[in-house]
């Protein structure tokens, strides 16, 4: 009885900036959710989580977040993760301006 695995991305915060970052398939930490590796298999997800969590001088608070495929790459499923891709709604701060280009 295996439940369908909801695809995941590995996400964390940058150690120095605190900004949300995402693990890419080529082992970089990107500021863009759309560049994240979309993981469709549970074992692989756990392996990537362990890989990310080991990078203690780059990131902090590594976890798996639900995601779905989109036209430009993975997209968040939950609104909390969506906010993390943007920044706060009360000021033009964070990713919505810093990664606009």
């Amino acid at each position: 009885m295996s439940r369908r695995f909801i695809p995941k991305v590995v996400t964390a915060n940058d150690l120095i900036l605190g900004d949300a970052v995402y693990l890419t398939a080529d082992n970089r930490w990107s500021r863009l959710h759309s560049e994240a590796e979309l993981i469709e298999d549970e074992d692989h997800a756990n392996a990537r989580l362990a890989f990310g969590a080991a990078q203690k001088l780059i990131v902090v608070g590594v976890y798996l977040a639900d995601a779905k495929p989109g036209p430009n790459g993975p997209e968040p499923v939950h609104f909390r993760e969506e906010f993390r891709t943007r920044g706060p709604s009360n000021y033009p701060h964070g990713k919505q301006v810093e990664t606009a280009n």
Partner: peptide
């Protein structure tokens, strides 16, 4: 480090410290 930073009022939030 976490308990040490918290003792000094430093949290990690959604987009930043």
């Amino acid at each position: 480090f976490r308990p040490l930073r918290l003792m000094n009022g430093l949290y990690l939030q959604l987009h930043a410290y």
